[in-house]
Structure formats: C-alpha cells, structure tokens
Amino acid sequence: MLQQDSYKQHISAQFNAELESVKNHLLEMGGLVEQQIGKAVDSLLNRDSGLAEEVIAGDEQVNDFEIRIDEECFRILARRQPAASDLRLVLAISKVTTDLERIGDEASKIARQAVKASEEAASSSATFTEIRHISNHVGEMLRHALDAFARLDVDMAVETVIADRSVDSEYATAMRSLVTFMMEDPRTISPVLGQMWTLRSLERVGDHACNIAENVIYLVRGLDVRHVEPDELINQVEEK
C-alpha cells in the first residue's frame, strides 16, 4: 500500500524530485479545472458572458497542462522504468490528466451555453434549479476526488465513486422535469435544450471525477475497481 510521503524516499533524489514535480503539476491542473467548472456554472447562473468568455479562453491553459504532464510521465517511464507504486503513480497521473482535460472541455461547453443563454431573452425567466443543484453535487465530487488524490485517501475516493450514482439519478430526474417543461410550453424548447446540454456536461464531469477517484484506489491499493458495482467495490477495498 502506498503511503503519503513515500515518493520522497528514493535513493535517487532526482527521481524524488521528478515524481514530486509531476504530482504537483497534476494537482495544479486539478485546481485550475475545478475553477473552470465553478466559473462556467456561475457565468450561466448569473448570465455573465464576460466570465464565460474567460472560461473559454482558459481552456488553452488546461490543454497545456495536459501536454506538459504527459511529457513528464513519458520521460519518467523512459528514463526511470518505475516499478510498483511508482509505476502506478505515473500511470494514474497520466489517466487523471486525461479526465481533467475532458472536464476542462465540459467547462468550455457550459460556458458556451452561458454565452448563448445571456443572449436569449426567453431564458431570462429560467431559474436553473436543476443545474444549480447538480453543479453543487458534482463540484463537491470533483473536489473530493482531487483531495483524495492529494492525500491518497481511499475512503474519500470510495465515497466519491458511490456519489456518482446519486448524480446519475439526479440527472435522470432533472431530464424528466425539463421534458415536462417543454411539453407544457413549446416556446421553452430552445432554452431548455441548452439547459439539457449543460446538465449533460455536468453529469459527464461527475463521471470523470468518479474515474479520478477510481485511479486513486488503484494508485494506493493496486486495485482495479473500474466497472465494479458499489457494493462489490466496498467489499474489495475492505478485503485488501
């Protein structure tokens, strides 16, 4: 099992520094992506197209992080041939980077919806109740997934994976209620479709946060819990 400070203990100080650096870059990227999602949702809720544009422009920085972190991972794999927990760390970082980059893309999509919404008169009456609710939930999941990664906290990672189930069901409920709106008043179809896209994006963010949490479990325990039902997941983690 991987412990918190264990990558500072290599005989090669340079190797310590490389692992430390790539992990820090990942956490920085995580912080940035969290901010992007937060801002994107705010820009939608407050119909703030300026903030939305900022999010769209910020995606480039997220992409740069992805490339840089992947380069660092490749370099470590090629030059250090890491084994055991070091290998799992590098692989987990490389996968988490991909998820973070995708979350960044979802943030941009939401920001584009925000720009559109700010231009549509019809949406001015929308309250975005469902979006507000799910975005809180998903934001928390993402924060927990990243915290779990930073602290190598398996329990928190397990909670995050399980939380994704309730996000999925909230998403289904929200979709049903938005369909009802559209049936009641066809004039709302266009703005409600926009809301649906946003909900879809948020639901995807939840899925990516769940992937990140699964990678934390893999990193710490060496346990591959992808495609495992929640009950089974808890069993496996407790067994190990």
Partner: peptide, 9 residues
C-alpha cells in the same frame, strides 16, 4: 519488496 524494487531506503 516495494522499497527494494522502487529503489527506496
């Protein structure tokens, strides 16, 4: 084992 194969103290 972990410490040996990863090159730790």
């Amino acid at each position: 084992t972990e410490d040996y194969i990863t090159g730790r103290y």
